[in-house]
């Protein structure tokens, strides 16, 4: 089933993670949330856990195959549960430049859900 990915010595990826948050722009700052806070959260919480790690050895993946499908769900819930300064809508992970995965908490991604452009 897993082909080359089944090699027990593992293999690495340079994952790229995109997180989408939503909210009303704050009246004073004009921001949904301060990007510096989101960057800080990633540096403080996300990177130490995952950067240069062997995903199979993490507690999260003890009983879960670390496919990028499952990684995108785990990251979504990490952001959703711990980043409280805006609403976490979606995590998108590029595994390679040819493959990517999106998870929005099980919510369907539909064109109708794309915010409409504000006229005028």
């Amino acid at each position: 089933m897993y082909g080359k990915c089944n090699n027990p010595y593992g293999h690495g990826h340079n994952y790229k993670v995109e997180v989408t948050v939503s909210g009303e722009p704050d009246l004073e700052t004009g921001m949904v949330c301060n990007l510096a806070d989101l960057d800080g959260f990633v540096d403080r919480v996300v990177m130490p856990r995952f950067e240069f790690s062997n995903l199979n050895e993490l507690d999260t993946f003890r009983n879960l195959v670390p496919t990028t499908e499952n990684l995108s769900r785990e990251l979504f819930y990490l952001f959703r549960e711990q980043f409280k300064l805006a609403t976490v809508e979606k995590v998108r992970i590029e595994e390679t430049m040819m493959n990517s995965f999106e998870y929005a908490g099980g919510r369907e991604l539909h064109p109708a859900a794309v915010p409409k452009r504000v006229e005028g």
């Binding site: 499908e69 995108s72 493959n99 099980g106």
Partner: peptide, 8 residues
Amino acid sequence: MVYLTRKS
């Protein structure tokens, strides 16, 4: 529901 995108 997870969305998977493949490029070509």
